[in-house]
């Protein structure tokens, strides 16, 4: 494990002979973003199509509680956050499929419940707020090697998942009944998709924080919508924007001395603004 990482770091020293890439924590931050941001952005394309931005925000905020529970139970908060996020994602999806309430209402109920639970737990534990800070705002500079390996595994998982199910997810987003007639197993696709989103959201929280994590899924996908002409270009533009903002954000934050996660999101937002202008200037049919 360590040898893989040190090999990667050596390679990065070769490829990136710049001051910002010298410290090991910067290399870890860069790797963390290059692994999670494109995965989040690729999932973001169907996420936006399914109008699930609020869902990913709810999962992001469930991390609050996940972290608090980890500290309470004496387990590493990074992992309880993942487990709790996955749990909330599946719970929301199951309830949504069994009620006539609109999806945003269901998500709203879960969202506030988990945040309230998190705050209740935190308020009992003195000294937890400091621990929470890095999750709230994100801190890619403190990513551990174990977390990096998890992010790499997740990157592969998301790639395989999308290669296998992307068509069915998009078809479902167009029309559920129609998708069913084409053999899409709706519930299985919904649950697996929400689960994968939850895993990626909780991994990306390490980089950009609870408050901004939805941005990593939504902004690149929205940027792609401004200019993409088809389903293929949409996904690649979205992933490309994620890579660009990951690298651009890290470099900019190094020189501007700003919070890394926030800077990454600002670069992505700049990409959105530019493509919105381009999209408005070039009429599409």
């Amino acid at each position: 494990m360590d040898t893989i990482l040190s090999g990667v770091f050596a390679l990065m020293d070769r490829l990136l002979p710049f001051a910002f890439a010298e410290p090991a924590f910067m290399k870890r931050a860069l790797l963390a973003l290059l692994l999670t941001a494109p995965a989040a952005a690729a999932l973001g394309v169907p996420l936006v199509q399914h109008r699930m931005a609020f869902f990913s925000d709810a999962i992001g905020h469930s991390a609050f509680t996940g972290v608090a529970l980890g500290v309470l139970l004496g387990v590493s908060p990074s992992w309880t956050m993942v487990a709790f996020g996955a749990l909330v994602a599946v719970a929301i999806t199951l309830v949504r499929g069994r009620t006539d309430l609109s999806p945003d209402t269901v998500i709203g109920v879960f969202f506030s419940t988990v945040v309230a639970l998190g705050i209740a737990v935190i308020s009992r534990q003195k000294g937890l707020t400091r621990n929470l800070q890095s999750f709230l705002y994100g801190d890619p500079l403190s990513v551990t090697d174990a977390e990096l390996l998890w992010m790499a595994a997740l990157f592969l998982l998301v790639s395989a998942y999308l290669a296998f199910l992307y068509n069915r997810i998009l078809l479902l987003g167009i029309h559920e009944g129609f998708a069913r007639t084409k053999g899409v197993r709706v519930r299985a696709v919904e649950i697996s998709f929400s689960l994968v989103v939850a895993l990626v959201v909780t991994a990306a929280i390490r980089s950009v924080g609870i408050l901004l994590v939805t941005a990593l899924l939504v902004i690149p996908a929205a940027t792609a919508r401004n200019v993409a002409r088809g389903a293929a270009s949409a996904l690649w533009i979205s992933a490309g924007v994620a890579v660009l903002s990951g690298i651009g954000g890290i470099v900019a934050s190094w020189y501007l001395d700003t919070a890394t996660g926030a800077t990454v999101v600002l670069v992505a937002a700049a990409c959105f603004a530019v493509t919105a202008l381009v999209g408005a200037a070039v009429p599409r049919r």
């Binding site: 290669a163 068509n167 069915r168 293929a232 996904l235």
Partner: peptide, 11 residues
Amino acid sequence: ALSAQRRPVFL
């Protein structure tokens, strides 16, 4: 393509 092919449309 969504309902006709196994290959994901992004390829």
